[in-house]
Design a protein around this nucleic acid. Sequence first.
DNA 1: TCGTTCGTTCGACAGTCATCGAACGTTCGC
DNA 2: GCGAACGTTCGATGACTGTCGAACGAACGA
Lengths: 108, 108
Amino acid sequence: MMTRNLAIDELVPTREELQLGDVLHALSDPVRLQIVRTLADADAEVACGQFPLAVTKATVSHHFKVLREAGVLFSRYEGTRRFHSLRRADLDARFPDLLDTVLRASRS
Amino acid sequence: MMTRNLAIDELVPTREELQLGDVLHALSDPVRLQIVRTLADADAEVACGQFPLAVTKATVSHHFKVLREAGVLFSRYEGTRRFHSLRRADLDARFPDLLDTVLRASRS
DNA sequence: TCGTTCGTTCGACAGTCATCGAACGTTCGC
DNA sequence: GCGAACGTTCGATGACTGTCGAACGAACGA
């Protein structure tokens, strides 16, 4: 009945609050980089289950939280699923070219 | 008398061995990012002592080791001092624009 | 030769991290 | 209303991290 009150302790940074160190750290893990790559390829919202990852759902959930708290992506509920999308505009505004450069590098 | 046999356990990656995750992780620490920034500004070799860092020399040494092992910089002995330089060519070859993009982002 | 300078290494410590299984809460379809 | 599907949260665990002071080693200068 109540709206979901999960993630109440989660601190999602605004565009201005984005920290380079946090973003780089978020992107430095292979699983998370894979998530971001998949998301960039899709160029749209993707549900957790759609990610071909070699770790438990608990671990996946953890990585999404790290990415959210670093400001790399945004997550939204839709029924029982959760859809994710890159915060491209914010990232590009704050750190121009960073995301694209990292993505390009991650595919070489 | 013998040549220095320090750093014998240090694994410095070749250009081909550079790993994006390692580089991003190396750059995600504020102290290390500061080091890299200083080095990029100098555009030349810089000795450890030249870095205005708010940590102990032991910690500084540790950070340089991390940066070396990630392949971000190269260190060379000259007498009692140790000079450091960015591995720009290698980084640019393997991850085009990455270093410059991160440096630019770190100054905004 | 002796003391200083510069940097590395060691041992320790507190904190964070990636990972997992298990339990839980929501939502949806039957 | 029941059970399945989907994710989150919890607690635990082992690994890694950033930091420090202290001891060490090599090279330089007086």
